[in-house]
Amino acid sequence: MELEEMQTVWSKLSDQLETQKKLTNKMIIMMTKEKYRSKINKIAIPEILGTVICYGTIVLILANFSRLDNWYNMLSGLISMTILLILPVLSLRSIHRMKRIDIAKNSYQQTLLSYTRAKKRFKTVAKWGYYLSFVLMFAILPVSAKVLNNKDLIADSKSVWPFVVAIPLAIVFVIFFAKWVMRSYNSSINAAENLIKEISEVDE
């Protein structure tokens, strides 16, 4: 379909819509009220809840840090706390960047550029978030065993067999999981990158 043909169709659509006006004052006023809005801007709520849980866990580990009485438990504790500290900050910061775009003042190009950059950052953080949470899953195991049950997961094990089975299984899981994360996120990150390039090219 040529552009001119598209314009003809569009103009017919515009004429049709002009004769079908349905908005009432009441509807418009209702839509301007906060409680009727979509929850798009409340996107940070799960992230905020997550942050509270993460920081609560840090406090719990810190309060019981003296119970982590050997190097591997201490190292696991430190790794867990670092991840629990960093992840929420990165996630909330990337959401904040998306939310602070001034759509009333910015032009379409500026908005698109800022938003695509922020979205790319958000997806990258989300991707690394998955990898780090996997590390966290392992790191927190000995810590929680010690903190919650006062049990040393490694020293108190009577047999090596659970490790011999669990470690290869975990490696296989990590490989599949990493592949899935890459597939899910890389295409949208690349698409965002291409769009940024294209918008910036127009800028030059």
């Binding site: 509807m27 209702m30 839509m31 409680k35 009727y36 809005r37 979509s38 929850k39 798009i40 409340k42 996107i43 998306m98 775009i101 759509i103 009333a104 910015n106 032009s107 379409y108 908005t111 698109l112 938003y115 979205k119």
Partner: peptide, 24 residues
């Protein structure tokens, strides 16, 4: 046009739940 288009492109589709909707 500027505000409406900016709203459309900055709409983040992660949240599935919706607010109270007006019968529209």
């Amino acid at each position: 046009y500027r505000v409406a288009l900016n709203t459309a492109i900055t709409r983040f589709k992660k949240e599935k739940k919706r607010g109270i909707q007006i019968p529209m």
